[in-house]
């Protein structure tokens, strides 16, 4: 279905970079609307436990995922809804998972922090800090042996102080594995500013291991995409691990119960000026000549899409504990 402008022009009439740009905008918007839906359903008691939202950080996952190919693999984090959606995980199945429904992407067994969708290249979202880094490192080992593919690990800046980070970067560098490490620096690990607990510069850490490293504006989807494209190409060409530090900010709390008192005065407002959706909208007009009405059309379309998704999720069945025939072990076939 094409997004229709009031005067009849549609997104499908765009072509080349403009059309692609609108598509990137749409994907970021899907993440934003998804997170808003999760937040509101959480407040209504339909999403349980805890959730970590990606609001403000959408350009990271969308920019990186856009350069990946079918055989590539991605490991995301507990803040992983954006990682999943950017890879093409069905928003309906993902929201159903948040609501613990049988139709969820993991049948309601995983929940917000542990989503796995191998069919969409997502080997997992990891609730343990650094788990994504080791999983992607191992995925890269498999991909190299299979002769095709790059693995990507997403993680926050707080994770650069974890053993997994140091061990795996060295491990990947020594083995020259095709892996891209994407550090999403949103400035806080939970409630602690990263500079309070981090010695030196984050970018210096991979650099000292000989890993090519680039720091990018994580609020600009094109900037992230460009850096990712170059990095993935180098990894694909056998040049070993690559590192991107994406400077970003989360506009919401770390998790469900976070009043955000640690933020510096005015900081949130300042970063909101650089909201990736706003940045994209401006750039679509200025650099690609896309009419604001086309973007409005995308907004309306995604809005309607989510109204329907939420309605279907709320109506989806819960798994039946009696029928659920979980098996402890996989039946061995080889």
């Amino acid at each position: 279905m094409a997004a229709t402008r009031k005067d009849g022009a549609a997104v499908t009439e765009l072509s080349g970079p403009a059309q692609h740009g609108v598509e990137l905008y749409r994907r970021m918007l899907v993440v934003r609307r998804f997170e808003e839906a999760v937040q509101s359903l959480f407040q209504k008691g339909e999403v349980h436990g805890t959730t970590h939202l990606y609001v403000g950080e959408e350009a990271g996952a969308v920019g990186v995922a856009d350069v990946l190919r079918p055989h590539d693999r991605v490991a995301g984090t507990y803040r992983g809804h954006g990682h999943a959606l950017a890879l093409g995980v069905d928003p309906q199945a993902l929201l159903d998972e948040m609501l613990g429904r049988e139709t969820g992407v993991c049948g309601g067994r995983a929940g917000s922090m542990n989503v796995i969708d191998l069919g969409n290249r997502l080997i997992g979202c990891f609730g343990i800090i650094g788990g994504s880094i080791s999983a992607a490192t191992g995925a890269a080992l498999a991909l190299r042996q299979q002769g095709d593919g790059v693995a990507v690990a997403f993680f926050g800046e707080g994770t650069t102080n974890h053993g997994y980070f140091h061990e795996c970067l060295n491990f990947a560098a020594v083995l020259r594995l095709p892996v891209l490490f994407v550090c999403e620096n949103n400035r806080y690990g939970e409630f602690t500013p990263f500079e309070d607990v981090t010695a030196g510069e984050i970018a210096a850490r991979p650099q000292t291991l000989g890993i090519p490293t680039e720091t990018v504006d994580g609020m600009d989807v094109w900037a992230v995409r460009e850096a990712a494209e170059a990095a993935v190409e180098r990894a694909r060409a056998g040049e070993g691990p690559q590192f991107i530090q994406s400077m970003t900010y989360r506009f919401v709390g770390h998790s469900r119960s976070d009043p955000g008192r640690y933020r510096k005065p005015g900081e949130l407002e300042e970063w909101k000026q650089r909201d990736p959706l706003k940045v994209a909208r401006e750039k679509l007009a200025a650099a690609f000549g896309v009419d604001g009405a086309v973007v409005d059309g995308v907004d309306a379309e995604v809005e309607a899409q989510f109204e329907a998704i939420v309605e279907r999720s709320l109506a989806a069945p819960y798994p039946d504990p009696v029928r659920d025939a979980a098996r402890e072990f996989a039946p061995t076939t080889s």
Partner: peptide, 26 residues
């Protein structure tokens, strides 16, 4: 297929897991 690793038990085990879910049998 047979290699020495750094002294990094987190990395060795985590990488084995990541490789396993991508088709190897480490």
């Amino acid at each position: 297929r047979v290699f020495d690793t750094p002294i990094s038990e987190l990395a060795i085990t985590g990488a084995a897991f990541g490789a396993a879910v991508c088709g190897l049998r480490p």
